[in-house]
Amino acid sequence: MENVVELRGVVAVLGGFPALAGVDLTVARGEVVLLQGPNGAGKTSVLRVCAGLLPVERGGGTVLGMDVTSQREAIRSRVGLLGHTNGLYLDLTVTQNIRFWASTVGATTEEVAAAMARMGLDGRLASVRADRLSAGQRRRCALASMLVRRAELWLLDEPHAGLDAAGRDEIDAVLRDAVSAGATVVVSSHELERAGALASRVVTVDGGMIVDGGTR
């Protein structure tokens, strides 16, 4: 099966401190990989290298067939990273937000409608301003933005953080739907039971290295 992510001995530095100390990781297309580990282990740094945000000091590899050292801008345009914020314009409605993201990649009105329907944002929610959404609904709106951007690799950093039980259930439902549709997902989470139930593989990160499950 084609590998979407292939990292070999990746070393990365963040703010003068080593963030990753030789990471080897492969993720196949359609796989759902859970990154687990204590705070500061390097989970977010792994996601940021995969997203083309964190420069690689040593080692190398590819994401979606593009080099992680020399093609970072190109990688960014094909992956979706959901971090601790949602990237929404709070004064705009759900539809306006998703249409804006669609317009940055030339997605069609039909693609916008399909993404909103898939994330359960059609109907009444479509015309609600983002600042009036619940935390879970905002997460769904952000994921819909990733859908219309046609992100081929979803990188989710603590997607359950800050959500109540209902919000977590909403995210789980969305991820189950994405997984069944064949999305490739790398998710870091402390919600091991929830995220583990969705994952096809669990990878343990500690001390800036992958200590278990990095390769198939």
């Binding site: 997203a51 083309g52 945000l53 801008e73 190109a74 990688i75 960014r76 345009s77 094909r78 979706g80 990273l81 971090g83 601790h84 914020t85 949602n86 990237g87 929404l88 314009y89 709070l90 004064d91 993201w101 940055t104 983002a130 905002r138 933005s145 951007r149």
Partner: peptide
């Protein structure tokens, strides 16, 4: 302020816009 309220400017850059 509109861009930073929910990390939208960061998201634009992360998305390679």
């Amino acid at each position: 302020a509109v861009e930073s309220a929910d990390g939208a400017l960061d998201a634009l850059r992360v998305a390679g816009v």
